[in-house]
Design a protein around this nucleic acid. Structure first.
Lengths: 197, 197
DNA sequence: GGTCAAACTTTCAGACACTGCAAACTTTTA
DNA sequence: TAAAAGTTTGCAGTGTCTGAAAGTTTGACC
């Protein structure tokens, strides 16, 4: 990777970091793109060369690389139930987030304090959803136009997002993986009433 | 209801209708609030007295009255599984949408053609979600901070949204209720691989 | 090392969403 | 019929985001 790309990567993370820090300090609405850009010493127009919206800068790059996930989903044996299969292909992303714990907890705190970002988070997930739906469809021998793949995609996505939020509000020693497994297990049991324990 | 309120209601629906028609004709991005307002012969400022955002005008009032739904959810016998219970309390809203079929199909077409609206639709549902989560929590003897109620709320919401989209793209004689039941059944079976049929 | 084209940034002008305020207007009520 | 209460409007302003043009940096090839 040349100097140019390294610099770009650097600017990109700097923008995200600045956006995150400022939004955490004063709330997303009280931070302008102008200010974020100034904090990184670039023009506001340059900000928009890196991110389409202010929200995108906060969210950074998608957690999950769609292409990899879809490929791995198709490689897994077909007799594994869809919920388990999706959980398996998400594992690397989960580990990556756990490794970047500090960054992610800050990000989740900002998201929690600014509900409009929760929306953006959802949007980011939905952006590449068609491929994922197609992969599920192939796995179960249906088409992307059928109900099942669409439902499986959005439901597993929701379960993952809930797990992220719970991780963010949990104690510092909790593992994201634990929350994801808990959510996925509930989905796999058809939302059966849990034992009060 | 006095003349004043009747007029307000009228203006409100006129704005939604105009927004819907124009967005259908040229795409949401090529319709300004100014134009929508002009089509109804009010000022742009008045538009914002009725709707907080342009998207809101398209979506209109929420499909589901949260208060009613939550109340009915708590009245149902506790031994009914949560998925069935939610399906039951949604029934009136489903019927209302079916009765207003024309309007809803137009609305869903516009949503499908303008993905940012799908987001807004999600946001509208999420707005009052806390009460719904609380109601589910009460039903199953947990707190709103637990995973299960949060998951059940977002998963049933997703299933409902998918059903709406499928209804919108289906033939003219299909019933929304059928799609909702199909989605909910899949959720209740834990996304078990469906029989290829 | 020098040179050129591609990639990147900046500046500028502008469209549009949305808000607060105060004036003008309309319906309701007493 | 006049005051009260609610509604609409114009206006000025902030902030996001876009396109175009001009300037700067980088990498590759000689």
């Amino acid at each position: 990777m040349g100097l140019r790309d390294r610099k770009k990567q650097q600017t990109r993370s700097a923008l995200t970091a600045a956006a995150l820090r400022l939004a955490d300090e004063r709330g997303l609405d009280h931070v302008t793109v102008e200010e974020i850009s100034a904090a990184v010493d670039v023009s506001a127009r340059t900000f928009f060369n890196y991110f389409a919206t202010k929200d995108d800068a906060i969210l950074g790059d998608p957690v999950i690389d769609n292409e990899t996930v879809c490929r791995r989903l198709l490689e897994l044996p077909r007799d594994i139930p869809i919920v388990d299969a999706v959980l398996t292909v998400f594992e690397p992303a989960i580990a990556a987030m756990q490794a970047d714990r500090e960054l992610w907890l800050l990000r989740m705190r900002v998201i929690k304090d600014n509900p409009s970002l929760l929306l953006a988070l959802f949007a980011q997930g939905a952006a590449k959803e068609q491929e994922f739906i197609a992969a599920i469809a192939t796995r179960v021998g249906l088409t992307p136009a059928d109900t099942f793949p669409q439902l499986a995609s959005v439901v597993t996505g929701s379960a993952f997002r809930i797990a992220m939020m719970r991780w963010a509000t949990a104690g510092p020693d909790e593992q994201l993986a634990g929350f994801v497994r808990e959510s996925f297990r509930m989905v796999a049991t058809g939302l059966a009433t849990p034992n009060e324990s």
